[in-house]
Design a protein around this nucleic acid. Structure first.
Lengths: 117, 117
DNA sequence: TCGATAGTTAAGTCAATGCCTAACCATTAT
DNA sequence: ATAATGGTTAGGCATTGACTTAACTATCGA
């Protein structure tokens, strides 16, 4: 299971690492093999694999193996939840004080760790 | 010193934690004290402080102490670099293959870990 | 078929995270 | 002045994260 909250966490976590962002940057320009991704980083293949797994878990990258080479493709639409989350903050920011009361009423009751994954 | 690359890392790292996002969500609706932030999470004050430090380091939150209570405020504009980074991926995605050659020419030379912070 | 290439798996290391408790320092209320 | 409130510091601990090396498997090219 993977609720929305957890997905957003996975996404931001994926983007929080410079190496992984470098991969996404490269892939935003076109597909690449694992070695091609590794090359500019100087990392070992296993290290790259692990990053790739994290990127795939977040939905940002899909990969397929043909022969002995695995080609990776960016799934741009996977960025949407991150953008939406940011957008929602902006939206709240707009009507600021209107919503303060409602929010407090929602979160004050004894719900403790209510909306964690 | 804090180059752009590092700032974006700090930002995404800050957003990668559900508790910190919860704080940002709360603050997107209005200022709050440390205790007010802590309350719905069930975390201890020290834990909340640490999250707050990370949020402040990313620029997302500013806080000021008046008397014995520290009020925290969201700095919405601090989200910009994150949004821009995402936007730039979308931009690349558009002219895809046009840029592939240029990008490869840039990153292929023996520059190893070139653009890391 | 043999060697090189591309990737994968399995440990293992080391530092960074996220949390806690305990002790402490201010400010405010009594 | 004392006690309660709100926050802060220091230290410790368990988990996760980012890497490595070593050993292995599956193509592909000569």
């Amino acid at each position: 299971m993977l609720n929305h909250q957890a997905l957003v966490t996975l996404l931001f976590q994926a983007l929080a690492d410079p190496t992984r962002r470098q991969f996404v940057e490269r892939l935003s320009i076109g597909p690449a093999s694992v070695s091609e991704l590794a090359q500019p980083t100087g990392l070992t293949l296993p290290a790259v694999m692990q990053h790739l797994q994290i990127l795939e878990a977040s939905g940002l990258v899909r990969s397929e193996k043909s022969g002995r080479v695995r080609m990776c493709q960016l799934q741009l639409q996977a960025l949407a939840p991150a953008e939406e989350w940011i957008g929602a903050r902006r939206a709240n920011w707009q009507h600021h004080f209107d919503r303060l009361d409602a929010y407090l009423a929602e979160t004050q009751p004894d719900d403790e760790k209510g909306s964690q994954e």
